[in-house]
Design a protein around this nucleic acid. Sequence first.
DNA 1: AGCCTCGCAGAAATCGATTACAGGCTCAAG
DNA 2: CTTGAGCCTGTAATCGATTTCTGCGAGGCT
Lengths: 333, 333
Amino acid sequence: MVTIYDVAARAGVSTATVSRVLNGLSVSADRAQLVLDAARELNYTPNRVARTLRRQLSELVALVIPDIENPFFTSLARGVADTAQQAGYSVVLCNTDGDVDKERQFLDVALSENIAGLVLAAAGPRSDVAEFRDRGRAVVAVDRPIPDADVDTVLIDNVGAGRMATRALWDAGFRDVACITGPVDIVTAVDRARGWQQVLDEVSDRPRVPGRLEHADFRVDGGRACMSHLLGLPDPPDAVVAGNNLVGVGALQVLSERGLSPADVGIAVIGDLPFSALSPDALPFVSLPTREMGTAAGAMLLERIAGHAGPGRRVVIPGELRAGETPRAATSA
Amino acid sequence: MVTIYDVAARAGVSTATVSRVLNGLSVSADRAQLVLDAARELNYTPNRVARTLRRQLSELVALVIPDIENPFFTSLARGVADTAQQAGYSVVLCNTDGDVDKERQFLDVALSENIAGLVLAAAGPRSDVAEFRDRGRAVVAVDRPIPDADVDTVLIDNVGAGRMATRALWDAGFRDVACITGPVDIVTAVDRARGWQQVLDEVSDRPRVPGRLEHADFRVDGGRACMSHLLGLPDPPDAVVAGNNLVGVGALQVLSERGLSPADVGIAVIGDLPFSALSPDALPFVSLPTREMGTAAGAMLLERIAGHAGPGRRVVIPGELRAGETPRAATSA
DNA sequence: AGCCTCGCAGAAATCGATTACAGGCTCAAG
DNA sequence: CTTGAGCCTGTAATCGATTTCTGCGAGGCT
């Protein structure tokens, strides 16, 4: 392990001078050259642990997400990494698996590692980031707000996304549109369902069929279970809004297994299906700009690390409807 | 920030005693209790940076992968995290995006952060982990071997997987089976193509059609491009082996867009399609035990961290063929 | 009684960087 | 010629833990 002492000895200067050269503080040109030569010859790399201990701030940024196997969050991760790495920070990703205890652990570790910043997609409604703020650490909430924490927040317009998906199905002629959304304690799930409900309240002149709102977990199996249940009803709906990408996959799988297509039972998905094996215009979906959400969160985090004060800001990014030409006929070719 | 000095002061003992209590070294019962009480009252958490600096070893394990958006690698990550977290290590994930320079950066950071161990799915054939070994850091290669490095390695039986996929198509009656695999500098891609070639060499009594092997990148767009090219040929193949999951998705998308199904052009995929929106037996695929690969790698890493010496071990895990009842008829219902 | 061993606890060194402080030098102004 | 300002530079403190070393006191053995 080559340390700053080795470099100092080789260059014939003090460690203070070496440190100053490497950090761009004023040092006479001749000595600076000696130090740079010595550092290169010894292949010196500063020890980040020592630097972090002294500076009380590391060059790491943590991104904590609830489901690493969901393309929604990995795309988000790409966005955060894009901005943070450009600024010289290394992004480390932590997967909580939706478990608030695991999340608590990761947050403790991040705090104790003196990380420069935290981007958090909270596992539940009770995440506590007060200690980060107390110690002046930058925090940005992404996808899911953190209650009672005055932090920068980047969100999807989930109500709007729910509205778009529902509207697309209604406009395509479906009249009994169900909704499979996520757990009741996840705000995004509730908001998307609210958008669905709003549209139905607006367009429908007759009383709606009860029991059309299902809460799955936000995974493929959850979508499968609820879709099977809906299709097994004596009076099944003629269309379904899938509350997220994975629920959509589950719903489509059930459809496919029963030999049905999105022309028979309408499906609109809130979220993208990058690995669906379907042509992109096989069904309507609301594309969510996850990567942009990540870059926005990363940019705000960098501003905070750079010292931006002031109250928490809030950015809401709209989804975008992408629909096949004629959903009903999309797969009939 | 509450430090060990605060705890020591409150308990009326020295910092050495606090440290010993918290690390389970022998301390008299009465003092131990004083320390524990003080630590609890102050809500003390040891500073990991200081600990790492002194111990020269952190409690972090790094997992470096080339594509975080590929479910293959995220599933792998789950496996590694499962084992490592049980042993008290926090896993941080680093996405190189297949870029050897980014990989180099992450490895430098990991080294400089004194991480306890590294699980590496190499971005290219020239990754250098010599420094890790020199400093006694644990390293495990996963999915892709690291040339010239004597490290533990966990691999898929890629040749075997290529064979299974090809055999499945042949057995289903396809006689002109092409192969879309990954870049020539990725060993897994070459091995899978080799398995394809082996089977064709064994079964075919007539000369094969040339130009049936395509090298895509290992992404959806790569699969799309090559599939389009193959289908556009004057004499297109009647079936295709997709070299990985994403290439398979791309190929299936092209098929779907052209109004074709896996009954028209046979497709066998090496890898799983967790988000395909197709029923699991719509087409034959070779399921790859990625999560098990991760747990195996994690277990070996922990052994090395615990001090296991000896030469690099090699574990090869076979894939498993999953085929629909009758591939040709799978989507005709 | 005297000596040795053993266990426990505190003082201080240590990990490897950054940085406050102080000393020395140069140069310009008075 | 003297004094002060300004710029480098080195010494040493510092970040917060762990761990070596040293010393103290109790207990056992001869």
